Amino acid sequence: MRIGELAERTGTSRRLLRYYEEQRLITPGRSSNGYREYAEAHVDRVLQIKGLLDAGLPTRIIRQVLPCLEQPRSIYFDGLTPEMLTVLQREHDQLTQRIACLTRNRDAIADYLATVRGMRAAAGSGGRAA
């Protein structure tokens, strides 16, 4: 598929897809006329990248983590430094905190919706118990 179709299917701008390529997060093939050609797997990859970016990870970390998303048990980082371990641990901890916060917010919204729906249902039945 061409860049326009990938952009449409992933909700990502063409400019951002080219940036992902510059950052070596995705690697499209090239057709005989030089156009970028993307495989079906690029759709999932771009969605993974977007999710990791939304979670707050910088592209330099995403580049190193992406291989783990395909085959986590076969990944070995030759040049893993203590600094990289520290960065990954910090990112892991921050993601854990964000997940906890998002979970609390989701649960609060769910409680609010249940309350509002219950009030509407009670009002719709003339205030009688349903």
Rank of each mutant, 00 (worst) to 15 (best):
I61A: 14
A110S: 06
T81M: 03
G29F: 02
L16R: 07
L69N: 04
E83L: 14
A39Q: 10
D93I: 08
T115R: 08
S125R: 12
Y112W: 13
R90T: 13
I99W: 13
R128T: 07
M119K: 09
G79R: 12
M119V: 05
Y112G: 12
Y35Q: 15
G79E: 13
G118A: 08
Y112H: 10
A122D: 11
P72A: 02
G126P: 02
V43W: 00
L95R: 07
Q89F: 02
A123F: 04
L95K: 02
Y35F: 14
D111R: 15
S125A: 15
Q48P: 10
N33I: 09
G79W: 06
A7P: 05
E40M: 01
G118M: 01
Y20R: 02
G51E: 10
L6G: 00
G127W: 04
G126E: 04
G34C: 06
R24D: 15
M84T: 15
Q23P: 05
T96L: 12
A108E: 14
V87M: 04
L57V: 03
R30Y: 10
S31V: 06
L53H: 08
L85P: 04
M84G: 15
P28K: 02
E91Q: 15
G118F: 06
R14V: 14
E5I: 02
R30W: 07
D111G: 13
Y35C: 06
Q71R: 12
I49Y: 09
G126A: 01
G118V: 04
H92I: 00
Y19P: 01
L88I: 09
F77D: 08
Q94S: 03
T12V: 11
I75F: 03
R106Q: 12
Q23V: 08
T27Y: 02
R63S: 14
R117Q: 09
P67C: 05
A7R: 01
I109G: 10
S125Q: 15
I49T: 11
E70M: 01
D111V: 10
Y35H: 11
D54N: 12
N33K: 11
G56S: 10
G118T: 07
A123M: 08
I61G: 01
C68L: 14
R45V: 06
Y35V: 11
V116C: 10
Q89G: 03
P28F: 01
T103Y: 00
S13G: 15
A129Y: 02
E40H: 03
I61F: 09
Q97W: 07
L69Y: 06
L95F: 09
E70C: 03
Y20G: 05
E91L: 07
D44G: 15
E40K: 03
E8Q: 12
R18N: 02
G11T: 08
L69G: 06
A122V: 13
R73G: 11
I99N: 05
R98E: 14
L85K: 10
T96H: 09
E21G: 05
I26H: 10
S32I: 13
L53V: 11
T103N: 03
R18L: 04
G4S: 08
L52Q: 02
L52P: 02
L53S: 08
